[in-house]
Design a protein around this nucleic acid. Structure first.
Length: 137
DNA sequence: GCCAACGTTGGC
DNA sequence: GCCAACGTTGGC
């Protein structure tokens, strides 16, 4: 199983919005970036991901599971863009902020730290474990 | 609200 | 195919 990080502006689509969708989940649509799209093509059903709030929060706030692999993005007619579907699994007892990731030398290679603008990014197993630990899981 | 970083577009 | 111009994202 692989691990990922999904980034969203909470004003547009927040963790609470995701939780409200329950097990039905929701399309992770609106990605207009080739690098992120290419990662989504590698994502498999059952993969886990962090849900990150950019802008005001700048924190990893929850864990999601992939329930549908890459398929055309229904929010555009442009067939270059695809999306996956995810559902909320559980919140992090303690959100892990960007500052915490930057302060932890073990996380200095995280895509989140190094590539601020990438909206879908891979997370290594070690990084996953460390962030869960920091988050109180 | 500003600005740096980065991705995309289009002219050559 | 290169690169300048432009647009967008996201941290501060």
């Amino acid at each position: 199983m692989a691990y990922w990080l999904f980034k969203s502006e909470p004003d547009v689509w927040s963790w609470d919005d995701q939780v409200a969708k329950g097990d039905a989940g929701e399309e992770w649509d609106g990605v207009r970036n080739y690098q992120a799209r290419n990662f989504m093509r590698e994502i498999k059903i059952g993969d886990r991901g962090f849900f990150y709030h950019s802008q005001s929060d700048k924190a990893i706030v929850g864990i999601v599971e992939v329930i549908a692999e890459a398929h055309p993005d229904s929010t555009t007619d442009d067939d270059r863009w695809e999306c996956v579907d995810i559902k909320a699994i559980e919140p992090l007892p303690k959100p892990v902020t960007l500052a915490m990731c930057k302060d932890d030398s073990r996380l200095s290679d995280m895509a989140l730290v190094k590539q601020a603008r990438l909206s879908v990014q891979p997370v290594t197993e070690d990084e996953w474990r460390i962030v869960c630990e920091l988050g109180g899981l």
